[in-house]
Design a binder for these strands. Sequence first.
DNA 1: ATTCTTAATGAGATTGAGTCTCATCGTAAT
DNA 2: ATTACGATGAGACTCAATCTCATTAAGAAT
Lengths: 143, 143
Amino acid sequence: MATAAKNIQILKEVLQKEGLRFTRQRLAVWTEIGISRKHRDADDIFISIRSKGVKVSRATVYRTIDVLVKNKLVRKLDVGDGKNRFESKIDEEHHDHMICLETGNIIEFYNSRLEQLQEKIALDNGYELVRHVHQLFVRPIKK
Amino acid sequence: MATAAKNIQILKEVLQKEGLRFTRQRLAVWTEIGISRKHRDADDIFISIRSKGVKVSRATVYRTIDVLVKNKLVRKLDVGDGKNRFESKIDEEHHDHMICLETGNIIEFYNSRLEQLQEKIALDNGYELVRHVHQLFVRPIKK
DNA sequence: ATTCTTAATGAGATTGAGTCTCATCGTAAT
DNA sequence: ATTACGATGAGACTCAATCTCATTAAGAAT
């Protein structure tokens, strides 16, 4: 389970590996993404950190997120509205997303057969699957 | 098979349905997308139309594409580089895309089992699948 | 064909997410 | 504590996409 101490440790290891320094701002960004509800956009994260009294800039938020995404601590999610969303990958099973066109709700799903098929399709074409983007845009079934 | 005459007819029907006028610009945009190679971005389409001597603006290109997408004549494709691509859906089987991370190549694929699975996943969650976004980011297998 | 109403267009301003610059700050090694 | 140099922040900048509004042109009516 993710404790604050464990999350700090994870961040420190990543920063060390990348030859980067451990700073208040980087910790704040990682904490914000790791602790809070999912699917938040960059500005949301920026505002939230500031509201907690930590001085940070948008530039630093974006720069830090890039590092976290590169090191697979965070996942970047494009829901098609021009703003990327971010979610922690720590203690999370892999999943994709269903976006409700009526409410904007984001529902997570996972299907192993689907994942296998994706690997197979890439392989059949002479490629190795690196990552995928998979969103289902849905509408509630009317009774 | 798609002939120029047939494509004009399709466009006219859509415009009529939408209560919109048939204009040189709208025809030029539809022709450009319908005739040319796939996966073109808006600016590409804009430049190409201009180079053929048809006076058009970026605003009109975007406005027309919106109408075409809304009426399922054109598909909008987000390949993750910040620029949407467009392709004609006329005389095209449905397919998804594999994007090569090394060359930027876009490969089309279709798998009926995959399509069925998506329908089922939405249904199992109480939703109706409206559309989906599905891209595989891949790397050539090294020999 | 000419007139007339109103939608469509174009040039350029604007938006907004994300990136970049560079003077200043702060980490952490010594 | 000093020092070297990486990190940060304010705000300029980028670029795809959208909006504004004066002008243009469909296409219906005559």
